[in-house]
Design a binder for these strands. Structure first.
Length: 258
DNA sequence: ATGGCGATTAACAATCGA
């Protein structure tokens, strides 16, 4: 059994005590981080090495940044999407683990406000991801794409659909593009077992959202058909959201057989 | 919900996130 988790940590340096506490209790084999908010030079490699992880870091100062931790060797490392070489924003990291499973850590652009150039950037990014997933589908390796997709796919995934209706998270074009990616044949590991409403992975720091359980489901583990065949269980670990100095996102995890 | 929180920085006020 292999346990894979994705977690938007909102700064790996600010979150290090929480992240280590969580790693030591959950012991995942693979972790996909988003919003590490630092460059590779200042990434806390040592603490993760001590716990037996190999790493791929795609860092950026202050903003964004993604990383992959794996107890298995990492090969065929990629840190940008196709056609994305000029992209200064660190939002994609991909590697093959143990020679038999491809994983990617994805931090999709937020895209707000819709009137700004951030919104077309989000749509472009989704288009590049679509093209890349098409390529992944044509290869024979099973894969898992994990991350913060900044998309609210269904009304049941948000505490107040009305409050987010006019944001980029719910925009028709964004949902349409995200669905076209999913429709290539991806399975949301969480939704494969749990169709309930009120299942969230993000709670805003503001307005007492955590205390009121005013959350949103923004983080997914998307599985290729072959990876879906191996899927055994999945869930969201809400506990770290209740700790001191938490990230505003909770880790999402799944277990694959083999 | 304008804002409220929390993280960042050629740092203590401005910017960003969802």
């Amino acid at each position: 059994m292999i346990k894979i988790a994705t977690w938007n940590v909102n700064s790996i340096k600010a979150r290090l005590p929480n992240v280590l506490k969580w790693l030591d209790s959950q012991n995942p084999d693979v972790v996909l981080f988003q919003e590490i908010k630092t460059v590779a030079e200042t990434f806390p490699y040592l603490e993760f090495e001590e716990r037996g992880y190999n790493m791929l870091v795609c860092g950026q100062k202050s903003y964004n940044g993604v990383a992959i931790l794996s107890k298995f060797p990492l090969e065929n490392k990629i840190t940008s999407l196709i056609g994305n070489e000029a992209d200064k924003q660190a939002r994609y990291a991909e590697a093959v683990i143990n020679g038999n499973l491809k994983v990617a850590s994805i931090y999709l652009p937020n895209g707000n406000p819709i009137e700004s150039d951030k919104f077309p950037y989000k749509l472009e990014w989704l288009e590049r991801l679509l093209e890349h997933v098409k390529q992944l589908m044509s290869s024979n390796l099973p894969f898992v794409l994990g991350g913060d997709f900044n998309v609210i796919l269904n009304d049941k995934d948000v505490y107040s659909p009305k409050a987010f209706a006019d944001t980029s998270l719910c925009h028709t074009e964004v949902i349409k593009k995200m669905r076209s990616i999913l429709n290539l044949g991806l399975t949301d590991a969480l939704r494969a077992f749990n169709k309930q409403s009120g299942v969230y992975s993000f709670w805003d720091y503001k307005h007492g959202c955590w205390q009121k359980d005013n959350g949103i489901l923004l983080d997914y583990l998307l599985l290729s058909p072959e990876a879906t065949d191996m899927l055994k269980s999945s869930g969201i670990d809400k506990e770290p959201r209740g700790w001191e100095r938490p990230s505003d996102h909770a880790p999402v995890w799944c277990e694959l057989a083999g």
